[in-house]
């Protein structure tokens, strides 16, 4: 199961990088979303998969059933929230940029360079 998800992570990164290289700002942002999801999945995978097991058990129950590691789940939750905030901000920025300049083309963004 881990190997399949690892391949999915790779695929998501591929799609993300491909979209990052496009000229449209919107596609660029979609690429960022793909990459951020790939990263979240990677962090989630880092503890290994323990399907169908709880992360918490009653204190003193003494069961020896396998436990899921709660920490990566908490990390991913935080990362998803942060990612949400950032994606909204980038979309708002893109929207304002489109409103003032009327362009979605990254090649037009050369004024502040050099």
């Amino acid at each position: 199961m881990e190997i399949i998800l690892a391949i999915v992570v790779g695929l998501l990164y591929t799609v993300g990088v491909y979209l990052l290289l496009r000229r449209s700002i919107l596609k660029f942002i979609i690429g960022l979303i793909f990459m951020s999801n790939a990263t979240n999945l990677l962090v989630f995978l880092s503890a290994g998969l323990v399907p169908g097991s709880p992360a918490f058990v009653q204190a003193g129950s003494g069961s020896s059933a396998p436990l899921a590691d709660p920490l990566p789940q908490a990390l991913v939750l935080t990362a998803i929230v942060i990612g949400l905030g950032i994606v909204v901000f980038t979309l708002a920025l893109k929207y304002k940029f489109f409103e003032t300049t009327g362009t979605d083309d990254l090649d037009q963004l050369k004024k502040t360079d050099n």
Binding site: T39, P72, F89, T100
Partner: peptide, 26 residues
């Protein structure tokens, strides 16, 4: 806004790499 887009894009990629590093470290 133009500078903001450039600042944002590269720094976000940096953050994603940071997080991937955290995952592998863990």
């Amino acid at each position: 806004l133009e500078g903001g887009i450039k600042y944002m894009s590269l720094n976000l990629i940096g953050s994603l790499l940071f997080l991937a590093g955290v995952g592998l470290l863990y």
